[in-house]
Design a binder for these strands. Structure first.
Length: 420
DNA sequence: TCTGGGGTCCTAGGACCC
DNA sequence: TCTGGGGTCCTAGGACCC
């Protein structure tokens, strides 16, 4: 048995913990640059505020309904997520942290428990210890656990826990899950399946194997087995090293000059370099892109990207900056309003597997040490005070974050103060 | 008219997830 | 004025090799 524990409206719930006045009030959390709605409390959902809705198109709805608005505060959400995961880990021998707000719990060999009771206990403990409400789905496969979880949320079942205990329970949930709401069925597959007469997860579970295999590849076939109760998706108990690392962001305002785009790109590149050093990897390739704002139809549009193969796999900021700037030289064209750029490092390999060609100097030990010191300092201060020159100091590309809450749990100077 | 048969590696693109 | 960011996996097709 697998249990999927999922935090309800996670980012909105995080903001609410430190603002008890928000209880009962609609809460939304916005994406970077305060662009889109990426989390909504139940009250906000009832107002018809859609996931991904542009904030500026909803201003009236926000003000009319006294909606509490927050910029995303990942330092806060990350820390609260860790606390939730630690609490969950106390209940089961093993768990897989699937995303910032979800974990699969290994419920095999737990026959001596009534799993529904156990679920309720988990839920109350997380609520009491951290203040985050969770829903729990329990089933013989990960996909069915996801589905049970969704069912628990949608139908507000007792204690937010739903256990697919037997064939009948599985069949019921399969029948009332629309095809597009199945984990692993996205918009494209949903359309294709509907065209072929499949309406519910139940229909899909009865589909011929070769049909699914040919239309949805081996991934779809795994899904089919999962729906039939045969576990086909492996556990990933230890988070694996990333194979790619990306840093790409829209600018707070449009840029026209290469200098401004270069400054942003330099910072994003430094960011991926630091993340690579953290997992002790080096990149074999670097991908850089620039683009204009596709939502401005009157602006001339431009998108271009380039992938460079690095002469030696590296995680050295200076080396990567050199190549990133070269890449920008190749793809930048003047005369456009640039809205976004990004740096992605690809084909990451462990530092220990570095291969040097006959003519390369080994990665200079001094520079390696310097960057490790830089990483430590920046981590301690909490922002990248120490930079290499190319990153600039103007930071014209910085994000808009008009509604940012304090980092209550990770910064001593942003602790909650209580007046008594 | 007929134009080998395997294999590997790489890349781009498409699907999905949160 | 303002429309997120960060990932994974799979497949088809081309280049290349023997």
């Amino acid at each position: 048995m697998y249990a999927l524990v999922d935090c309800n409206n996670f980012y909105a719930s995080c903001e609410r913990i430190f603002n008890p006045k928000m209880e009962g009030r609609p809460v939304v959390v916005l994406s970077n640059n305060d662009g889109c709605v990426i989390a909504r409390s139940e009250e906000a959902k009832l107002l018809g505020i859609e996931m991904g809705a542009p904030a500026f198109l909803n201003e009236e709805k926000f003000s009319k309904n006294n909606v509490a608005i927050f910029s995303s505060n990942y330092a806060l959400y990350g820390d609260l997520s860790d606390r939730v995961m630690k609490t969950l880990a106390g209940f089961v021998p093993r768990l897989e942290v699937y995303s910032i707000d979800e974990a699969f719990l290994d419920m095999h060999n737990m026959q001596h428990y009534d799993l529904e009771d156990l679920g309720c206990k988990i839920r109350t403990t997380v609520k009491k210890n951290i203040g985050i409400p969770v829903s729990i789905g329990i089933a013989p496969t990960k996909t069915l656990a996801k589905m049970a979880n969704r069912y628990a949320k949608k139908n507000k079942v007792k204690c937010g826990v739903h256990w697919l205990k037997n064939k009948e329970a599985i069949s019921t949930v399969l029948q009332c899950t629309a095809i597009g709401d199945v984990w692993g069925v996205g918009p494209q597959y949903a359309k294709m399946l509907q065209r072929n007469g499949f309406k519910t997860a139940y229909d899909l579970s009865k589909a011929p194997d070769d049909f699914v295999r040919s239309k949805m590849t081996v991934v779809g076939h795994r899904l089919l087995n999962e729906l039939r109760g045969i576990p086909s998706i492996d556990w990933t108990f230890e988070p694996e090293d990333k194979k790619n690392i990306c840093c790409a962001r829209g600018f707070g305002k449009l840029h026209t000059t290469k200098k401004d785009v270069a400054e942003a790109l330099a910072n994003y590149t430094a960011n991926v370099a630091e993340k690579m050093r953290k997992q002790k990897s080096c990149a074999k390739r670097l991908h850089v892109f620039v683009q204009t704002n596709a939502h401005r139809p009157d602006d001339p549009q431009y998108f271009r990207s380039i992938t460079l193969s690095l002469p030696v796999a590296t995680n050295n900021t200076g080396m990567l900056l050199k190549h990133a700037m070269y890449a920008l030289d190749m793809i930048f064209r003047p005369g456009y309003n640039y809205q976004k750029c990004g740096a992605i490092v690809l084909d990451l390999i462990p530092e220990t597997q570095l291969q040097f060609s006959m003519f390369d100097k080994a990665e200079n030990g001094k520079s390696k040490k310097a960057f490790s010191v830089l990483d430590t300092i920046n981590k301690g201060i909490g922002k990248d005070i120490v930079r290499v020159a190319r990153q600039g100091f103007e930071r014209k590309f910085k994000l808009r974050q008009a509604f940012l809450s304090p980092r209550y749990t990770t910064r001593i100077d942003e602790l909650l103060t209580i007046k008594i």
